[in-house]
Nucleic acid binder design. Structure first.
Length: 193
DNA sequence: CGGCTTTGACCTGCGC
DNA sequence: GCGCAGGTCAAAGCCG
């Protein structure tokens, strides 16, 4: 992971909650929620035609785009829906040459799988901080390999290492700092029309 | 030497 | 019950 690398500006958020990550909190996600056509229209396609940054619910993401096959169990409350309550899940679609975005946290890879409907491999990461069970999946967009889909699952129970780093440097952490030093500086937010 | 990646095996859930 | 697909584990190897 090279912090100096940043994904290019075209980023799509699929968000069910924006409270997990400080940068998301900064982006007023709730006001940027885009509806997704649950009637079968692929919302993502609409996103691509529209502004490069947009948000849909995480459920819609997994159902309409992420996993066409197994998503049913998650999209509609199955009998053990409580088990599936994994916490917050946020998917970020990034146009980037690199697979792994530097989001300020330290991740440890624990798996790699080829998945159906995607010729590219999906990588599985866990937060390497002790006691933090946050996971993330990283895969290339099957239809446009220029895009990387990163799905975060869970909530960090600790501060971002970047956060600590800036504090150590005597810099007061705020959203401006975050945006300056992370990939987020490349994210452009377009208000809904 | 410690931490991380790789990779095949294993587990689980779901549809037929 | 069986097969498939997604997700996770863990041993081995790699690298700084």
């Amino acid at each position: 992971m090279n912090p100096s690398q940043s994904p290019s500006p075209n980023v799509t958020f699929f968000s069910g909650d924006n409270s997990i990550y400080p940068f998301m909190d900064n982006l007023e996600f709730s006001s940027l929620m885009f509806g997704i056509d649950e009637g079968g229209n692929n919302g993502l396609k609409q996103q691509e035609a529209s502004p490069p940054t947009s948000i849909v619910s995480s459920e819609a993401f997994t159902g309409e785009y992420g996993e066409s096959g197994s998503s049913k169990k998650e999209s509609t409350g199955s009998k053990d829906g409580e088990k599936k309550e994994m916490g917050d899940r946020v998917a970020i679609r990034t146009r980037s040459k690199i697979d792994v975005m530097d989001d300020g946290y330290k991740w440890r890879k624990y798996g790699k799988k080829s998945v159906k409907n995607n010729t590219n491999k999906r990588n599985y990461y866990k937060c390497s901080s002790e006691g933090c069970m946050v996971k993330k999946r990283v895969e290339r967009d099957c239809e446009d390999a220029a895009y990387v889909i990163t799905t975060y699952e869970g909530v960090h129970n600790h501060e971002s290492p970047s956060h600590v780093y800036y504090n150590d440097m005597g810099l007061s952490y705020d959203h401006d700092n975050w945006k300056q030093h992370s990939l987020l500086q490349s994210i452009q937010i377009y208000p809904p029309s």
